[in-house]
Design a protein around this nucleic acid. Structure first.
Lengths: 248, 248
DNA sequence: AGATAACTTTGACCCAGATCAATCCCGAGA
DNA sequence: TCTCGGGATTGATCTGGGTCAAAGTTATCT
């Protein structure tokens, strides 16, 4: 099992191309084995819904590639994104019957799924997996609460900067970022999706991105390819001033 | 152990005046015993800080009486409340060293505390306690995400109605509500605290409360004593239209 | 009872972000 | 290459909620 910076949070899972952050590294090979037996892959196309809020959810699993979002919708159509799922993120609630949110693939997506029942049984038999899931859920709770501050108190410009810093930070964890300090990545979200995450309209998102670009905080090539010349500057714009360490 | 509607989520704990929702009812008396050995009570005055964000937190526990809040603050003083802790709510993170938020008693408060280390050890020995904590944390995560919708997409009036419905619902679970359908309770928060929870200013909170009162959605006796003549009406105003089932 | 201070309400005005409405851009397909 | 269509941008205008300011209300303390 090759070590890396998240080694203690992850588990190589058979021939799975990603390391599941869901499950802890102390798992021995028997547990690995039983994980392998209940797992399968599913692919989704960009825009495809994975589950609807209220649906029975028969699996849990990790995102292998692509991006998915968790959203809530009011009767009149107002929507709020409540989570962004990037590769290695865990999806689903052991112990819950129904999905609480709409889960949608925003890009082409591959998931590594575990059938829920057997996964739950394994969790019962393997106390430190429940403990690891508790830890992960606490992380998600922190991320959600951090996001409450963004939604409740930050300006549109700060909101955009916060979102960019999260994506940049997260992206940098996956692909190593160029060493001169600049960060480069592709925005995985449309302006509309960003607006739904930030509690804004897509027009405001567009205007603020233009403004950040004008001010040299970010550079844009095409609509999606972003360069951050100075990450600390971005954090300042986000009102975080050092950490900004949210993220699901 | 007297049964009540939350029996399967709670545990009578020695001479403790509340039932801890933290720990599951399947605990046998040995576990009860070990809980008793590591527990102690602490009182806090209204306005007193319980822990500051970043401080070492040496206990976990339940609120016995009174109200506490979790808040985050930006350098420039903007604050966002991210959690409201009512009697029987659990406080603290097994497995976490430092507090992530400021925890403040907004009324006089009594907590039943367990020293963190021994509690964590008991959690290790008792798998279904970790599972129960996971379940609770998932509930909190749902509540936080529900609140993201409130913060990101609801109008000021809807925000106030949402908060009132949460408090009313929660209060009704504790003291049984009068059977004619009206609900009566005392607001446990100042206008400013409500504003911090809702991402508003205290002036806007005051105006919207006056407006809801003018429209007969709520009745006020003094500044704090609230009567809800028609709870469904309140839920409509909150934009929830049936459920509104958030809450920490 | 009177006084002080903390909380609340209400008013007047302003502005960040929403809304409505054109374009504009760029990638996919013929 | 042209054309089509779904983002994305930009402009003009409007408005919900913020800001600043002045009373009004309790509650507590002496």
């Amino acid at each position: 099992m090759p070590g890396n910076l998240t080694a203690d949070l992850t588990l190589d899972c058979g021939d799975c191309p990603i390391r599941h952050r869901a499950v802890c590294a102390r798992c021995d090979s028997d547990e690995l084995q039983s994980l392998d037996e209940i797992k399968y892959y599913r692919s989704f196309e960009a825009g495809q819904s994975i589950v609807w809020s209220g649906d029975r959810m028969e699996f849990v699993g990790s995102v292998v590639s692509g991006i998915a979002t968790l959203t809530q919708t009011m009767e009149d159509g107002r929507t709020q994104m409540v989570g962004l799922l990037l590769p290695s993120d865990f999806v689903g609630r052991p112990g819950r019957e129904a999905a609480a949110y709409d889960v949608v693939a925003t890009t082409d997506l591959v998931m590594c799924c575990f059938r829920k029942k057997p996964f739950e049984e394994m969790m019962m038999r393997t106390p430190h997996i429940a403990q690891r899931l508790l830890e992960m859920t606490l992380d998600e709770l922190d991320a959600a609460r951090e996001w409450m501050l963004v939604l409740g108190r930050k300006t549109a410009r700060e909101k955009i900067a916060s979102l960019l810093s999260i994506i940049a930070r997260r992206d940098a964890t996956l692909k190593l970022s160029p060493s001169n300090g600049t960060m480069v990545f592709d925005l995985p979200l449309t302006r509309e999706a960003m607006a739904d995450y930030l509690g804004l309209t897509l027009e405001t998102v567009s205007r603020q991105i233009s403004s950040l670009k004008r001010d040299g905080v970010i550079e844009l090539a095409g609509k999606r390819h972003v360069t951050i010349p100075d990450f600390d500057r971005l954090l300042e714009e986000a009102g975080d001033d050092n950490d900004g360490g949210m993220l699901a």
